[in-house]
Design a protein around this nucleic acid. Structure first.
Lengths: 214, 214
DNA sequence: AGTCGGTCTGTGACGTGGTCACGCGCGCGG
DNA sequence: CCGCGCGCGTGACCACGTCACAGACCGACT
């Protein structure tokens, strides 16, 4: 079975076959998928790997908008295809990533013909829009410590996070020094232990409580 | 000519007629169109008036997400219809507002049949998503003074804004006291003049420069 | 006219967050 | 061994958010 049938349940077999026939592009870790102001060439689907889309402010501060994982599409391309609006974020591969780009004409044909494809595209849009709303809420209303705790839990499935303070800051939209000070405070309370380029999670339940507090 | 043909250029005449036949709902100023956690009943289009959608944090602080004006649809309803995700914002009418709700079944039929309708829905989604991204960028990276200046210019077409400090704060996602102090500072510089429930714009060009600064 | 309650606004104090300007130590290649 | 880059710590300072109040203003009611 090709990727299309797996990612798009309900798609007609002949449509799936056309998608499976499209060329697969492999992007290395660190590659830039698109940058701000560019126009999309097609509708991109991720087969394996992970793409992170983030926003950079004029001062150079960054914030992670969302990640695109296998089976998901990059909605920025969708929006560009339909609304003719250029990208406003920057997308980078955080690991080697295989993607398929569905050309605009085939994309529009699928939207017209396939209920399943429309459903997929819309669910993706709806879910991203909800992600963005939730992110906005967190940035506007919650303190850095809560966002940092959430980021650590998100990254540290295995009990430790391999990331510099600057990387953590870029993820949550704060500054390096602030992350350093927060981590120091958290270490003093026994929640984490820090090392160069590494944060160990010592008390995940407490971090979870922190992440959920306002 | 009905509203449908005006708002949805390219729609087939018989489709437009079906939309024009739908009942129009009139909502008074201040009415709540939907609140967080609710599920949508249909796809809402605004014919006249204005609806503002905002987010409220746990502390009670608010921020305006976007406004829906005549000829536009409320994308929150779109997303709910397609992704089955509940609303996360709250929508209030800021003036008497007439809307048409397209039932889910008719909406899906139009999406399947009409290229023009799909285009409209997608352009609306794309434009909202861009609005949200821009808002996130401003909240994450720009100072209160710039956001306040932008809000004043946005509201004060006629040279003055009828709004309390608390209302301005809710619009830009800040606190009342902060807005009071910023307005005082701006008044001292001759940019505005303040009065109870009213702000006069004394130097719009300077405000514009402020709004565009980081 | 007086007063009463609600709303709008000013003010001070305090903690958090962002920015700037450093200095310090570690690791790696020359 | 010596730089050099990178990650990190630190202190000072300003912007913001929050809390607790105090006036100031307004309409309504006696």
């Amino acid at each position: 079975m090709g990727w299309a049938a797996a990612s798009l349940p309900g798609l007609a077999p002949e449509e799936a076959a056309r998608l499976d026939a499209l060329p697969v592009t492999t992007l290395p870790r660190g590659a830039r998928v698109f940058g701000p102001g560019e126009a999309p060439q097609g509708f991109a689907m991720v087969l394996s790997g992970r793409i992170e889309v983030s926003l950079t402010g004029p001062s150079g501060r960054e914030i992670l908008l969302y990640a695109v994982e296998p089976g998901q599409s990059c909605i920025q391309t969708t929006l560009g295809l339909l609304g003719d609006e250029p990208y406003s974020g920057e997308a980078l591969c955080v690991s080697d990533t295989r993607i398929v780009v569905i050309p605009a004409t085939l994309f529009h044909a699928l939207m017209a013909r396939s209920e399943a494809f429309r459903g997929f595209v819309f669910r993706a849009l709806a879910s991203r829009m909800n992600d963005m709303t939730a992110l906005l809420e967190r940035v506007a209303f919650t303190r850095v410590e809560a966002r940092l705790a959430a980021a650590l839990l998100d990254l540290g499935r295995s009990g430790a996070v391999e990331a510099t303070h600057a990387e953590l800051a870029a993820r949550i939209g704060s500054a390096r020094e602030v992350v350093s000070r927060r981590l120091e405070a958290m270490a003093k309370r026994g929640l984490v232990a820090t090392d160069r380029g590494r944060v160990e999670l010592r008390d995940p339940p407490a971090l979870k409580r922190l992440a959920e507090a306002q």
